[in-house]
Nucleic acid binder design. Structure first.
Lengths: 201, 201
DNA sequence: CAGCTGACAGATATTGAAATCTGTCAGCTG
DNA sequence: CAGCTGACAGATTTCAATATCTGTCAGCTG
């Protein structure tokens, strides 16, 4: 709204880009739109991001990182020795939080969710990093469970990857249309039960 | 090639449609093309299929049914009392066969596979029936395992659904690009191990 | 003189007129 | 007369002209 007297930073450009994407959608959001929203010429945007693709990738990374961070709280006191909740509950909570967060985003603002689907499809690398991040969180939960004698897992990394893949139906955005169908909650619980049963020592 | 003197049947139209889809792809395959391939006017095609969408749906169903049939052999002597292989091997074989079949189709003829991906996306109902069919096959294997005392499952239907969902990464065509990446084989084995461990009595 | 502007060339997207396709049906044909 | 044809209206797609956008850079400005 105001003529933005602050210095032009990468951060401010990213915020404006998110806003433009929200307003116009991924197909019609242009670098000129972003510059106009900031009250600068589009040449200035190119001073901070080499290409439009790089700008969109940065927006994608930011968004995926926010998701990772919101989950890291559940991985919690890993290695701090306080024990906390039992490993099984922790793992179940982590997946429930992931599923709930994704489902809420898809349900609350379908258009914005669709926009981010397009962004993730064109930025496979950023998604790969995000998945590696999530699998890392899972690995730490599994490792803690093995250490506590609650889980049996020869190789926590492999097990973490297996858990991630086996639950994709409930967090991969491509299944979003199916998340609202009746029975989804039951399906989720059934998969979790089966996986946790396979994990028990 | 030849002027096809045989009577015009739904079956012959479906075969010609598959051929036209193979040649022109899903975007450019027209009803006029199908009629031309058969040496008839396009009005005759509409005598057997009410709309173009109905014709494409029938082609989709045929294709999905062929996949189901190729797996039904593995469900095999369910209930015939001969025992056969142990339930765990049977289940593993079934999933291996499903994964191998999908991966072969995607790898051997990527264009045709992409064509059928488009068809399945526009025919959600047919896909739903196909999934129900596959889950039914799984349920029978699980039930046989429970009867033999090898598997623990309160509700074989629920368990079958869970097994299906947990393995989607390895048969849902949307993941096809990832099937050729290194480590996929290991990921598949890890998921299967975890699921079978969770299933054991 | 660091940071920004705006004109520019080539690439990409939009638009509207023309071509093709879908679905119908009255009538032809064997 | 059962089954097929082909002309037709409205819907959809194609294509080429036009407009917009991306990315660069010489020069302006505070």
């Amino acid at each position: 709204m105001a003529p933005t007297p602050q210095p032009l930073t990468a951060e401010r450009i990213l915020e404006a880009t998110e806003e433009v994407l929200r307003r116009h959608g991924p197909a019609k959001a242009t670098v000129v739109d972003v510059a106009r929203a900031l009250g600068v010429s589009h040449g200035s945007v190119y001073r901070h991001f080499r290409t439009k693709a790089a700008l969109r990738e940065a927006v994608t990374k930011r968004w995926l990182d926010r998701t990772s961070e919101s989950l890291s709280g559940i991985v919690a006191g890993d290695g701090n020795g306080d024990g906390g909740r039992d490993p099984e509950t922790r793992l179940r909570d982590w997946f429930s939080a992931l599923f709930a967060a994704k489902r809420r985003k898809a349900g609350d603002d379908p258009e914005l969710f669709a926009t981010y689907m397009v962004l993730t499809e064109e930025n496979g690398d950023a998604v790969g990093e995000h998945i590696a991040d999530l699998v890392g969180q899972l690995r730490r939960i599994v490792q803690a469970g093995v250490d506590a004698g609650a889980f049996a897992a020869d190789d926590p990394e492999t097990t973490a990857r297996a858990l991630f893949h086996a639950s994709r139906r409930f967090h991969d955005p491509r299944y979003a249309p199916e998340w609202e169908q009746p029975g989804t909650e039951d399906d989720f619980r059934a998969v979790m039960d089966l996986l946790l049963r396979g994990l028990r020592a």
